[in-house]
Design a protein around this nucleic acid. Sequence first.
DNA 1: AACAACGGTCAAGTTGCTTGACCGGCGCTG
DNA 2: CAGCGCCGGTCAAGCAACTTGACCGTTGTT
Lengths: 146, 146
Amino acid sequence: MTETDLGRLLLEGHRALANELSDALEERGYPDARPGHAAVFMNIDRRSGTGLTELARRARMTKQGMMLIVDELENRGYVRRVPDPEDGRAKIVRLTARGRRYVAEARRVVAAIELRARRELGERRYEVLRSALDGLIGAGGEVVEE
Amino acid sequence: MTETDLGRLLLEGHRALANELSDALEERGYPDARPGHAAVFMNIDRRSGTGLTELARRARMTKQGMMLIVDELENRGYVRRVPDPEDGRAKIVRLTARGRRYVAEARRVVAAIELRARRELGERRYEVLRSALDGLIGAGGEVVEE
DNA sequence: AACAACGGTCAAGTTGCTTGACCGGCGCTG
DNA sequence: CAGCGCCGGTCAAGCAACTTGACCGTTGTT
């Protein structure tokens, strides 16, 4: 593929932030966080919980794939599956107390990282960076469907 | 992991450019390009060729992993392995004519994409984007070694 | 001459998904 | 209200893109 120079910068930038995040979470007592878990934590309804198939749809992956992640998260005590009282087929994936603590912590860390970046770059550069990224993304492939 | 908002922007930006690149290459007669191939094309010495182990080292992956990619590229006619006359153990991975055409084409497409981005964003924003990305990357985890 | 180090390869295991097949509850339709 | 197609969840197998482990022959160092 021979990455665009700019493309590589973007990828490395992403990795830099992602590493910072996972390091910080590890330090704070969540050493078992994997990137894939975000597919759940970013899409689950924080209080009411969300069905597996719906989670899969939101994360744009198969329900089987989502199941593997949910299985793991359930083993580790971040979520649990409860039967849906209104639909005998369905189960609802709900955050446990630990899961909610984790989400809150992750949000704090993300905010801290972003703040640090903002300060290091300076307000103006930071804003330009964000809007430039929006521009790049908007310009590319519009594949929304459904 | 619950990606940084900025982190997600970076990742999506990368994907937008990467898709643009692979679409363009497909259009121009290279439908079989896979992202992993870049590990070879970006690291191989264009005229003299490069040994497998050295390629692996440059791409920061195992020689076994590199071998799989080189195998595939050899099947598809982009590279071939020739014995190293100066070292009975070694083989040299060399670009074929097709491989060189591919690399040239990829470079052109990359340049075109970057130029387009530059024009869409405007000179100033483009420069700020690049230097902001450098800043982000530099700030993160320095894991260079060796 | 001996031998650790290196280049390349084969084999098997791992990760993080995917496609395929199925089961049982749901709800519309006739 | 019986039948039937659909949908949620799950098990099984497959696949991509690597990894670790083991090995062989060549090398060049002592």
